[in-house]
Design a protein around this nucleic acid. Sequence first.
DNA 1: CGGCGGTTCTACAACGTTGCACACTAGCCG
DNA 2: CGGCTAGTGTGCAACGTTGTAGAACCGCCG
Lengths: 358, 358
Amino acid sequence: MAVTMHDVAQRAGVSIKTVSNVVNGYPYIRAATKERVEAAIEELGYRVNMSARNLRTRRTGLITLAVPELSLPYFAELADAVISAADAAGWTVLIEQTSASRERETEVLSGRRRHLTDGLIFSPLALGPDDIELFSVDFPLVILGERVFGAPADHVTMNNVAAAKAATLHLASLGRRRIAVIGAHEGEQVGSAALRTEGYRAGLAEAGLPFDPELVGEAGLWHRSTGAETMSRMLDDGVEIDAVFALNDALALGALHALHAHRIDVPGQVALIGFDDVDDARYSVPALSSVDPGRDQIAHTAVELLLERIGASGDPAPFRKVVPDSRIVGRESTGENGDVVGVQPGGTEQVAVDMTWA
Amino acid sequence: MAVTMHDVAQRAGVSIKTVSNVVNGYPYIRAATKERVEAAIEELGYRVNMSARNLRTRRTGLITLAVPELSLPYFAELADAVISAADAAGWTVLIEQTSASRERETEVLSGRRRHLTDGLIFSPLALGPDDIELFSVDFPLVILGERVFGAPADHVTMNNVAAAKAATLHLASLGRRRIAVIGAHEGEQVGSAALRTEGYRAGLAEAGLPFDPELVGEAGLWHRSTGAETMSRMLDDGVEIDAVFALNDALALGALHALHAHRIDVPGQVALIGFDDVDDARYSVPALSSVDPGRDQIAHTAVELLLERIGASGDPAPFRKVVPDSRIVGRESTGENGDVVGVQPGGTEQVAVDMTWA
DNA sequence: CGGCGGTTCTACAACGTTGCACACTAGCCG
DNA sequence: CGGCTAGTGTGCAACGTTGTAGAACCGCCG
């Protein structure tokens, strides 16, 4: 039923290997031969069988992107960016949703779910530093996020502390003195929550503001609903605030909802800034100020590092940690008009780790 | 380097074929043998080589989902649902972004970009009824959306006219008399815009309201920005309105933004309803009423129909058109609290088309 | 004219798996 | 006791491609 190279070869009157050579752009082929083969391909509607090629070359041209959920806008936009970057390099992306469950995340690393891809870009949310040995895998891996540092893999992360500090200072620069934070994870030492909270405290310190535990709103999951609940609780408790730093945009949009329900004017009474700069931020009412952690650059760099690993043949290069520049985007919720009001530079760093795969 | 069945067979002291049988759950194997093989697999860390299996079985276990862009929340949520449904059935999804370009959409159908998947779920946005011959493909295909009807493929769509009519009637039932529509495509006969606009007019008619062209806001792209612009233009032009039906939620959220900028109270002065019921709708300020077209059911049905086609061996079954139930969800933007305030039943229909692939 | 380097094409043998056909053993029925 | 069925395991030959090695040809130099 399916047309194979054999059929094409027969029709063009050449060997099957010559067809292969034409298809793969091997240079030493007479123009006339090449044309004959191409004509035969066209006439028969031949298309190369990827399974056979993959078997022979031990490459699939596929990479996996594992994220918690696509319905979270941050990850949807990240996936969009990763797919586009991979596509530009001629690669295809297969998306794995982990639901942020330990079990699924472990499966992703064990390869049990990595059907037939050449590498993995993984944004863990459930696994943490205690699981670091799971990240010693025998295939090319790029880690995203801030759950796991020092694993034997390339890592693209963001400038959490510096950016969070800058966001907090930005609120302070507007004259706000009672700056709440929403989305904290009490007692956690790792992950975005811990780092951004650390940045928040650093910002307060630099602005000469006291740290008040009353101003810290816990929120385990960073969804809109939890942002709304946490904000509501704080307002119902009568905590006095004049600004809110939400640790991501979903929380911020939820908080905005709660502020509105409490008939509090934003930014008049309370200024609000989020983190991630998802597309939604631009169109909320009022438009949400946010921290752009450099998502496109993250996606682009992650693909680039992964493809480099996949293509590498000789000695393994040292692992790298890359941090894009991040920016504060000021919009209506802090009384601004959409301009970038601050940049925190990133950078690249080589990490000395035991080479566990070679 | 990689462990193969051969290695496992050697270690377990059985033939390679027996290993294959164990891996594939062939029943006639002595328990002791099976255990030995499984132990060897475990010890050696064997994992089946998908490329080889795919070559041999002529199946890849992958399906493609082609959508315009993941950063559009509707498609992100659809992708989430499709991936989950496929995963539950043991299949993996590869996402192709078409950017709604004719070229990319054509490539998807031609198979030039369908690397190695067993079937395609395709939501076209650029191709239309004039391109129907492109949809005659030689692989299993399920079409989503309302750009193309009558193609030789299964089709999962939504109840556009009935749901749009119901949404319009809902606004009328609140006593609104000047109901604007946003997102219309002047002169188009096909696609969501045409169908939903048709439902809008039917709703007006049934409510005994006149159709006023002034109330029709064109918006080519259904993004927030265009929704905001269209709404602004209408308001700046001094068009008198007391309700807005936005043809999707992105437009609605953009419109909401513009209404807010014009200091118009929603729902006090203007009631607003969208279409799609994306997650955002629940958390906007005010929360957005919307039409839930049955997204989960769409995803689930699409996967089901596709896998049925892929699995089918004998005579091709007739093509089917499936329409899930849709629901009106009333939230703050129409003065309600999140309840479902109306259901429009869907259904399944067998479509007689020439069998172009068999 | 022998030989050499570049060009053009081909034969052969994998890559790792599974479908098919079959061998062999028991147990059991007639 | 012959033969039949169910249970258990194996060998062989693909699946469609590409890497390796080399054959055949050409022109040209010494």
